[in-house]
Simulated assay, not measured.
Amino acid sequence: MNFYRAVRAVTDASGEGPVDWVAVGDAAKAVTAPGTLDLAPADERAYAADVRAARDQIRSVAGVDFDLPETVEIQNRHHWIDANVVTFERILDLLEPEAGLMPGIARSLNTGSMAFAVGFLANNVLGQYDPRLLSPGAGDDHSLYFVHPNIRRVSRQLDADEDRFRRWIAFHEVSHAAEFGAAPWLTDHLEDLIETTLRDLSAARFNRDDFLAIDTTMTAVEGYAELLMDQTFDEEYEDLRRKLDARRRGGGPIAQLIRRLLGLGRKRRQYERGKDFFEAVVNARDLRTANLVWERPENLPTDDELRNPTRWLTRVA
């Protein structure tokens, strides 16, 4: 890691926008060890086999028809940074904040903040399904990434068998592909909510209803993936679930503070709240009933229905 190079990238931030995204990538990579990708051919085959097994199991057990992304990459942390800086740029550019009286200083501060956030996430992300939200051009496809150095490190931290842990993560990320495949409207729905909310924020307005709609939609997305991950995984997983949940809640005080600042506490609550909702639906009915969430936007649970799944069942099922 090279903190001097990171500081230089931030202080030299340039351009006309509020964030120098090239500098964000350079600074984030300067303070983030890439990690090794010393994959044997057997490791590459194992990743591919896990993804295919997850696809086949989810199709069979959940009855969801979907295709895998054409792009499935095994990445190191720098690869993940390169892929996601573009996503952050697309989303945050909608804010169009005013540069203020000292645009150069503001640009450096914004660039440094984003570099810090991206670097922290690159050290912690295990896998990612990318639906390419707000991506210009209809030709952009969805993608699936696995950050191999993080999967290896975390499996050792949790004292879990690496092959089994990697396979379980594959089932979670492929579950996201199943959601977006089962609900062709979901990408447009999220894009509309995000665009409206960010434009309101850029105009110093806060629309609580739109923000709540994003939160409930993402709670459904994360909760359903957690449900499918457990319902379709073809090996024992209770110890993995217990250890991973503890990791999401744990970490030292600095790590916990960073997670709060980045909103990762909210994401953890989305996992937990969404999973509780879908488990209640499956226990009351079955998995096919839970799939009704993805038939149309109106079937998404409201905030009240997430707390009271019976009300969703009464309204939808």
Rank of each mutant, 00 (worst) to 15 (best):
12 D>S: 13
15 G>C: 11
16 E>Y: 13
20 D>E: 10
22 V>T: 13
22 V>P: 03
26 D>H: 09
29 K>L: 02
31 V>S: 01
32 T>M: 01
32 T>R: 05
33 A>I: 10
33 A>F: 04
33 A>T: 07
36 T>W: 12
37 L>A: 07
37 L>K: 14
37 L>T: 14
40 A>H: 15
41 P>L: 06
44 E>N: 12
46 A>L: 12
51 V>S: 05
51 V>E: 05
54 A>K: 03
57 Q>S: 14
61 V>E: 14
61 V>L: 14
62 A>T: 04
62 A>V: 00
63 G>S: 05
64 V>C: 11
65 D>R: 09
67 D>T: 08
67 D>N: 14
68 L>H: 11
69 P>M: 05
73 E>S: 08
74 I>W: 07
80 W>P: 01
84 N>I: 01
84 N>S: 09
85 V>R: 04
85 V>M: 03
88 F>Q: 12
91 I>P: 00
91 I>L: 10
93 D>W: 06
96 E>V: 09
97 P>Y: 08
102 M>H: 15
103 P>T: 05
103 P>Y: 04
103 P>N: 12
103 P>S: 08
107 R>V: 00
108 S>N: 04
109 L>N: 02
110 N>M: 03
112 G>D: 01
116 F>P: 01
121 L>I: 08
133 L>D: 05
133 L>R: 03
139 G>T: 02
139 G>K: 09
142 H>G: 05
144 L>D: 09
144 L>A: 06
145 Y>P: 02
148 H>Q: 13
156 R>T: 10
160 A>H: 12
166 R>C: 00
166 R>N: 11
170 A>Q: 04
172 H>T: 00
173 E>H: 06
179 E>S: 09
180 F>H: 02
180 F>Y: 07
182 A>R: 03
189 H>D: 05
190 L>R: 03
193 L>S: 04
196 T>Y: 05
201 L>R: 15
202 S>N: 13
203 A>K: 15
203 A>R: 14
213 A>Q: 11
217 T>H: 10
218 M>Y: 12
221 V>N: 14
223 G>C: 09
224 Y>A: 03
224 Y>M: 11
227 L>G: 00
228 L>M: 11
239 D>W: 10
242 R>P: 01
248 R>I: 00
252 G>I: 05
253 P>A: 13
258 I>S: 15
258 I>C: 15
259 R>Q: 14
260 R>M: 13
263 G>R: 13
263 G>M: 04
266 R>V: 06
269 R>N: 12
272 E>H: 01
274 G>N: 05
278 F>C: 01
278 F>R: 00
282 V>N: 07
283 N>Y: 12
284 A>W: 08
287 L>S: 07
293 V>N: 12
295 E>F: 10
295 E>C: 06
300 L>S: 02
302 T>C: 09
310 T>D: 14
312 W>K: 04
316 V>A: 08
317 A>E: 14
